[in-house]
Write a protein that binds this DNA or RNA. Structure first.
Lengths: 118, 118
DNA sequence: CTGAATCCTACAAGATACTG
DNA sequence: CAGTATCTTGTAGGATTCAG
């Protein structure tokens, strides 16, 4: 630790950043995390403003990155459940410091009623 | 803490996410953090691939968000030094868990020689 | 040296209609 | 219900040139 600078390298973020850096990336992961299990239409309702095409494309992305898991029930009408993978749950933990940091300056409280880090 | 769910609210990120979520946002903050002080052209060199217009626009953004500080020396040739604000330094700390998380799955090591979290 | 001005391209993401 | 198929728009970000 002496001969090594305190430099931080961001390379580890290289791949995932393209997914979780997108507008809805963290939002979706967190929403599923908050509920445990969510279906497509439930996500559409919770994430106010997202379009079906955007949501579908994001879900594919998140699944490919192994942040969420998808279970399909061959019923009529069809049922599909989304949940977080272990990796997804760990991500949700990992961003807590970032949220705490952001809360410090927050003018956000004007629009948000959450009181987690106040 | 009992009557409160373990739900996480992302609203605090609302404003800053538009800055640090951009392609070069965290990169610039971190690069300045690694060096302490950096000039415009030094950033151009370190951040391989960034264009002058993009860098200039990002620096304005980051300054507006009070993540970096800018000091202008009225010399010839002109000299401008960028450094992290306290808030910027705290941000840099806050993303460490995220980097550690990302490192766990890392195929990143192929392209990156940093060994901080291995 | 430190940017600003201009032009251009790629892509995220919204709106809408439709299907198995 | 859970998406797909199109179409459109806004904007990030690159390339290049110029200026104080």
């Amino acid at each position: 630790m002496k001969n090594q600078s305190n430099a931080i390298c961001l390379c580890p973020l290289d791949g995932v950043i393209d997914t979780i850096g997108k507008k809805w990336g963290l939002l979706i992961v967190n929403e599923i995390g908050n509920h445990g299990i969510l279906r497509y239409n439930e996500l559409m309702s919770e994430l106010k403003g997202i379009s079906p095409s955007t949501l579908a494309s994001m879900l594919k992305d998140l699944e490919k990155e192994e942040l969420i898991e998808k279970e399909v029930f061959r019923e009529i009408p069809p049922r599909v459940e989304y949940s977080l993978s272990t990796r997804g749950r760990e991500l949700r933990e990992a961003i807590i410091p970032l949220i705490k940091w952001a809360s410090k300056k927050g003018n956000y409280s004007i629009h948000c009623s959450c009181n987690l880090f106040k």
